[in-house]
Design a binder for these strands. Structure first.
Length: 970
RNA sequence: GCCAGAGUGAUGAAAUUGGUAAACAUGCGCGACUCAAAAUCGCGUGCCGCAAGGUUUGUGGGUUCAAGUCCCACCUCUGGCACCA
C-alpha cells in the first residue's frame, strides 16, 4: 500500500469491482423469510440539461449510508434510482437547443448517471426506470383509465389557470403566489376544456392519515394547510323584492320548479348570525343572472362591476391588502332567517366563487374583511359576541349575590392637553374612568353624559367612538355584590371645560385626576376592560374576531360561542365541511407528456382506449412547440389524431392534451418493486413484500408531489392494486446546499459547483463525508471549500493509521479503548438510524483521536480496527474496502455484518462527578461508577478546593444525582 | 395576519431531553520540522481580567438546589398558508 491515499486509483478500482460482482443486486425475496426488508428511496431526479450540482447528491449520500448499514444489519434492501423526465423543463430545454426532447432526455440521463457513478452509490441499476419510457407510462395511462372508470377523472370547462408564457393550463399546486411556479409569469384565468382529477374526494382521508405518518411536522402541517379543512354551517337567506313586502320572491315556473328564491351562505361562525348586516355575492354567483330581468334596479352598475372584476388578474383580485370594492344590488333584500331582519345584498370581488357557496353573510363586527368593507360603504356594525373578562384581582365571592347590570365606561380626553379623565377613589385603592350603570329606558351615550356630569361636573362633551362591548365579572366591594356587567366602552372628548357643581356625595367618593396616555397605559387602572380600551384608543375600533358570549341574539343571548354554533346550526342550517383543496387540473397543452388515453367519438362521446391498446405512445414529430391557441401541438399530427372509436368503430379523434409532469412521479415508487412487468403495474406478491417505502428522502415538494402521490396511492389501494394505505411510512426532509455566496446554485448566478470537480480533487469519500458532516441533515447550509480539508484529513489519518496498525490479534486491547469502541458503535448505529450523520462522523473522529493517542504506548488489535472500519464503511466505501482487503480479507466489507455493541462494555469503571456549591461548579471528583451518596459526599468534602468554598459553613441541603453531580446548598 | 420551526463562539455546529454550555470540525495565534513554503505534528483559542475570579445560549421576567433545555411576555429569522367566510 501507498503512504499517500490515492483516491483516484482506489475509487475507480472498487467501483469497477462492485459492478462486476453485482454486490448491490436486490433479490425480490430473501431466502431467509425471517429477515426483514427495507425500502429506502430518494425522490428521483429530473434530469435537467445542467447536470448535477453538489446539492443533488446530499440526499443520495444519506440513503446510501443508511441502506448500506441496513444491508449489513441483515435487511434485504431495495434502493433504486430512476428518472422523472416528462414535463416542461425537458421540453423547453429541447426547444432551446433544437433537439428532440427524447434525445435531450437520453443525453441528460447519461450525464447524470456518469456523475452519480463517481460518487460510489449502491443502486441496483437493474431496476432503473424512466417515466418517459412507453413501458412505464403505459401504466400511468392505465391508472388514468381506472380513475376515469370510477368517475374520478372528468372533463371540465371551468376557467383554469393559464400561463401565457408556458402556454399551458396549470393546477393550483403549480402556482407560487399567483405566478407560474416555472417561469414567474402572471397567470390568467381562462375557460377551456380540460381533464380534472377528483382529488377532493380523498381530502378527508389524506388529512386523517397524516397522523399515522412518521414525517416531519412542518410537512404534515403544510399538507393540512393545503387541504384546508373547515367545518361550518350552510344556511339560506330568502330574497325579497324591495317593493313587494310579502311574500318572498318566487322563481317563476319553467325549467326550475317553483319555490322561494334564496341565497345559500357558508360560515364557520354561525354564532355571529344575529350580527349580519348585509350579504355579499361573488361576482360569478349564478343567482345574479336569475334576478337580472325582474328585480335588480341598478343592473347597469352591477353588470359594470362584474365586467371589471373579470378583467382583473387573479393576483389583483386576491390581494388581501388592496381596498375592498363592491356594489349594492338594489331592489332586493335578504332576510336573516334568525330574526327576520332585512339586509342589503352586495356583489364584491373579495368573495370567491369557488369556495363555499360563493356567498357570504357579512358580520362586520366580527370579521376583518366585512369590517373593512362596512367601514368603506358605511354599513352598520352590530356587535353580537362579547369577550368575557374575569377580573382576577377581584373575583366573584361565593355566596354573595350576583347582580347583572348594563354599564358604561367612559373615556374622556381633553384634546387641548391630550390627557384623560380619571377618578381616584378615596376609600378603595382604585383608579378608574368615569363609569356607571345605564338606567332603564336610557341610551348608552345618554347615560355616559349623565355620569360625566354627575361625577366630574363637565357639561360639554362630544361622543367620538365606541370602543367595544364586554362582559366583565368581578366582585364589587363597595356594594358587596358579585357583578356581571355588560359594559359599553365609550370614548368622548371635552368640548370645553365648563363645569357644574359636583354633589358632596360624589366628591366624598373620588377625586378627579388627569392622566397622560402613557400613564393610563402603564399604571394599574382598575378596569379589566383595560386591554380592550387601550387597543381601541391606539388603533381605533377593530372587529372582535374571537369567541365569547352572545349578545343581542334573541334566544341565544348569553350562550357561549361554541354552544351557540351547535344550536343555531340545528335550528337554521346544516353542518357542512369544506376544503380549500381543489380538484387537480390534469391536462397540459404541451407535447412532452403522457398522452391522455381517450378518444372523442362523434357518436359515443368520450371513450377510453382499451387496456390492451396501451400505451398510447407519443408520436414522433418534427415540431413540438406549443401552439398557443389552447390546443396541444399533437392536434396537428393528423394521422395520429384520427383514429377509430374503440366502441363503435366510427371515426374518432384522439385526446391531444397530455398529462402534467407530476403524473409519472405519483406512483414510480411502486414500479421500482417490479420495474419490468408488462402484465400488471406491480406484481401483488412483490408489492406485499416491499411496500411501503420505509424511508423516503427529499426536500421541497412538501405539498405537490407528496399530495399527488398519496392521492394516487389511496386510489390504487381502493382498486386493490396495493396493500397499504400510505406510500411513504417515514419521510426525512433534506436541507439544501447553497452556493458559497449563500445563494441558490444556478446557472444564472454562475455559482454551480459540480460534484465531478470535488471528486477529482478530494475524492468521493471526502465529498460524501463532507456533505454529511456539514451540519444537521435537514439544515440548509452554504457550501464551504475550507471545510472539505477537515474530512479529508480524517480520511488520511485513518489511512496512515491502517499502515501501522497490527494486522493480527496481538494488539493489546486496552479496556478504555474497548469501552470507547462500544460507545462508538452504539452512537454511530443510532445516529445513522436517525439521520444524524454529522454527529455519527464526529463520534468516529473522537474514536480516531483516541486511537492515535493510544498508539504511542500500545498496539491496537485487529478486531478493534476491523470493527471501526465497518462503522466507517457506509460513509467511505472506497477507502474502507481498500484497507479491508489490505488486511487480508477476501470478500467485500460491505457484505460484512454490522457491529453490535455490548451494553456491559459501555459501562465505565470510573465516573467524573461534578461538585457544585449553590449550583456553581467548584470541582470534580473521579470515583467508582455507582458510588453512593455518602461516599461521594465524604470524598467531595475532603477536597481542598471544596473546603475553600465551604469554609466553616454547613450544607443545608445536598442534592445527589448518581454518577453525575453533587450539589451542596449552603 | 394565521400556522409550524428556529435563534448558542469568528464559522458549520454539539449538548445523554433539567445536571460541567461550546463536543467534533474549520478558521485564527504560537511552537516544532524546513534554507524556505506547503503538508504534517504539538499547544492554545466564548467574553472580561495579569491573576484570583467573574460572566455567557435573541430580550425581559418566572419555576427549580440546578434552565440552552420547562412556563409567561416580547423581538428577530426561516418555511408554509393567506380576502378560504
Amino acid at each position: 500500500m501507498n503512504e499517500k491515499y490515492d483516491h483516484k486509483e482506489i475509487e475507480k478500482k472498487w467501483q469497477k469491482k462492485w459492478q462486476e460482482d453485482g454486490i448491490y443486486k436486490t433479490p425480490d425475496f430473501q431466502s431467509d423469510p425471517t429477515k426483514p426488508k427495507s425500502y429506502v428511496l430518494d425522490m428521483f431526479p429530473y434530469p435537467s440539461g445542467e447536470g448535477l450540482h453538489v446539492g443533488h447528491p446530499k440526499g443520495y449520500i444519506a440513503t446510501d449510508i443508511y441502506s448500506r448499514m441496513k444491508k449489513m444489519q441483515g435487511y434485504n434492501i431495495l434502493h433504486p434510482m430512476g428518472w422523472d423526465a416528462f414535463g416542461l423543463p425537458a421540453e423547453n430545454f429541447a426547444i432551446k437547443n433544437k433537439i428532440h426532447p427524447r434525445i435531450a432526455v437520453e443525453k441528460n440521463i447519461k450525464r447524470f448517471k456518469e456523475q452519480l457513478s463517481k460518487i460510489g452509490f449502491n443502486y441496483d441499476w437493474n431496476r432503473e426506470i424512466n417515466t418517459t419510457d412507453p413501458g412505464y407510462y403505459k401504466w400511468t395511462q392505465w391508472v388514468f383509465l381506472k380513475m376515469l372508470k370510477k368517475g374520478l377523472a372528468y372533463e371540465s370547462f371551468e376557467p383554469i389557470n393559464w400561463c401565457p408564457s408556458c402556454q399551458t393550463g396549470l393546477a393550483n399546486e403549480d402556482l407560487d403566489g399567483g405566478l407560474c411556479e416555472r417561469c414567474g409569469s402572471v397567470v390568467e384565468k381562462r375557460p377551456m376544456r380540460q381533464w380534472v382529477l377528483k382529488i377532493t374526494e380523498y381530502a378527508d382521508r389524506m388529512l386523517k392519515d397524516l397522523d399515522k405518518l412518521d414525517w416531519p411536522e412542518h410537512i404534515k402541517e403544510a399538507q393540512r394547510n393545503w387541504i384546508g379543512k373547515s367545518e361550518g354551517t350552510e344556511l339560506e337567506f330568502k330574497i325579497k323584492g324591495n317593493n313587494s313586502p310579502q311574500p318572498p320572491l318566487k322563481l317563476r315556473g319553467g325549467e326550475q320548479s317553483e319555490g322561494e328564491l334564496g341565497i345559500k351562505v357558508f360560515t364557520t361562525r354561525v354564532d355571529t348570525l344575529f350580527g349580519v348586516t348585509y350579504l355579499v355575492l361573488a361576482p360569478e354567483h349564478p343567482i345574479i343572472e336569475k334576478l337580472k330581468d325582474s328585480k335588480i334596479e341598478n343592473w347597469n352598475e352591477v353588470e359594470k362591476y362584474i365586467k371589471e372584476t373579470k378583467a382583473k388578474t387573479e393576483i389583483e383580485r386576491t390581494d388581501a391588502k388592496k381596498e375592498k370594492s363592491g356594489v349594492e344590488i338594489k331592489g332586493i333584500k335578504a332576510i336573516n332567517p334568525a330574526n327576520g331582519e332585512e339586509v342589503p345584498i352586495f356583489v364584491a370581488d373579495y368573495v370567491l366563487a369557488n369556495y363555499g357557496t360563493g356567498a357570504v353573510m357579512a358580520v362586520p363586527a366580527h370579521d376583518e374583511r366585512d369590517f373593512k368593507f362596512a367601514k368603506k360603504y358605511n354599513l352598520p356594525i352590530k356587535q353580537v359576541i362579547i369577550p368575557r373578562l374575569i377580573d382576577k384581582s377581584n373575583p366573584h365571592i361565593e355566596g354573595k349575590e350576583t347582580i347583572f347590570r348594563d354599564a358604561v365606561i367612559v373615556v374622556v380626553k381633553n384634546p387641548k392637553t391630550d390627557k384623560y379623565l380619571c377618578l381616584k377613589w378615596k376609600k378603595h385603592p382604585w383608579v378608574t374612568f368615569v363609569m356607571g350603570g345605564i338606567d332603564k329606558g336610557e341610551g348608552a351615550i345618554e347615560a355616559a353624559k349623565r355620569e360625566i356630569e354627575e361625577e366630574t361636573g363637565y357639561k360639554n362633551v362630544k361622543f367620538i367612538e365606541n370602543l367595544g362591548l364586554a362582559q366583565s365579572e368581578f366582585y364589587a366591594a363597595h356594594k358587596g355584590v358579585n357583578r356581571v356587567a355588560h359594559t359599553r366602552n365609550l370614548f368622548f372628548e371635552l368640548v370645553n371645560e365648563e363645569k357644574s357643581k359636583i354633589s358632596e356625595e360624589e366628591s366624598e367618593i373620588h377625586e378627579i385626576e388627569w392622566r397622560s396616555f402613557d400613564e393610563i397605559q402603564n399604571s394599574d387602572m382598575t378596569h379589566s376592560e383595560m386591554p380592550l380600551i387601550l387597543d381601541g384608543l391606539k388603533k381605533g375600533m377593530k372587529p372582535y374576531t374571537e369567541e365569547g358570549i352572545l349578545f343581542d341574539s334573541g334566544e341565544f343571548t348569553k350562550i357561549d360561542s361554541e354552544t351557540a354554533r351547535e344550536r343555531i346550526t340545528k335550528k337554521f342550517g346544516e353542518k357542512v365541511t369544506k376544503y380549500k383543496l381543489r380538484d387537480w387540473v390534469f391536462s397540459r397543452q404541451r407535447y412532452w407528456g403522457e398522452p391522455i388515453p381517450v378518444v372523442h367519438c362523434q357518436k359515443c362521446g368520450v371513450v377510453s382506449v382499451s387496456e390492451k391498446d396501451l400505451p398510447v405512445t407519443l408520436p414522433e414529430v418534427e415540431r413540438y412547440e406549443p401552439t398557443g391557441n389552447g390546443e396541444s401541438p399533437l392536434e396537428n399530427i393528423t394521422d395520429w389524431v384520427n383514429t377509430k372509436c374503440p366502441k363503435c368503430g366510427s371515426p374518432a379523434k384522439r385526446e391531444t392534451n397530455t398529462m402534467p409532469q407530476w403524473a409519472g412521479s405519483s406512483w414510480y415508487y411502486l414500479r421500482f418493486i417490479d420495474p419490468k412487468n408488462s402484465k400488471t403495474l406491480v406484481d401483488p406478491e412483490k408489492e406485499k413484500y416491499w411496500a411501503p417505502v420505509d424511508v423516503y428522502v427529499g426536500g421541497d415538494h412538501a405539498v405537490r408531489h407528496l399530495i399527488y402521490a398519496r392521492f394516487w396511492h389511496k386510489f390504487l389501494f381502493d382498486i386493490g392494486s396495493v396493500s397499504t394505505i400510505e406510500p411513504f411510512a417515514r419521510l426525512e426532509f433534506l436541507g439544501f446546499i447553497l452556493a458559497k455566496d449563500g445563494k441558490k446554485m444556478s446557472k444564472r448566478w454562475n455559482n454551480i459547483i459540480n460534484p465531478d470537480d470535488i471528486v477529482n480533487v478530494w475524492g468521493a469519500d471526502t465529498l460524501r463525508m463532507y456533505e454529511m458532516f456539514m451540519g444537521p441533515f435537514e439544515n440548509t447550509i452554504a457550501w464551504n471549500d475550507d471545510n472539505l480539508i477537515g474530512v479529508r484529513r480524517f480520511i488520511e489519518r485513518i489511512w496512515k493509521f491502517s499502515l501501522i496498525a497490527k494486522k493480527t490479534e496481538e494488539g493489546n486491547n486496552n479496556q478504555k479503548l474497548e469501552n470507547l469502541l462500544h460507545k462508538t458503535i452504539k452512537k454511530v448505529t443510532e445516529d445513522i438510524e436517525n439521520y444524524k450523520f454529522n454527529t455519527a462522523i464526529s463520534t468516529m473522529m473522537i474514536f480516531l483521536n483516541e486511537l492515535e493517542k493510544l498508539d504511542h504506548t500500545s498496539n491496537v488489535s485487529k478486531t478493534v480496527f476491523d470493527t471501526f472500519l465497518k462503522l466507517l464503511a457506509p460513509f467511505a466505501p472506497h477507502m474502507t474496502e481498500e484497507i479491508w482487503h489490505g488486511f487480508g480479507h477476501k470478500t467485500s466489507i460491505h457484505l460484512e455484518e454490522w457491529p453490535k455493541f455490548d451494553e456491559s462494555k459501555i459501562k465505565e469503571e470510573n465516573t467524573l462527578i461534578t461538585i457544585q456549591i449553590n449550583g456553581k461548579v467548584r470541582g470534580q471528583l473521579e470515583i467508582k461508577t455507582g458510588a453512593s451518596e455518602e461516599t461521594v459526599k465524604e470524598k467531595a468534602l475532603n477536597l481542598s478546593e471544596i473546603q475553600k468554598w465551604l469554609a466553616d459553613k454547613k450544607a443545608k441541603k445536598v442534592i445527589f444525582v448518581p454518577d453525575r453531580i453533587i450539589n451542596f446548598v449552603i
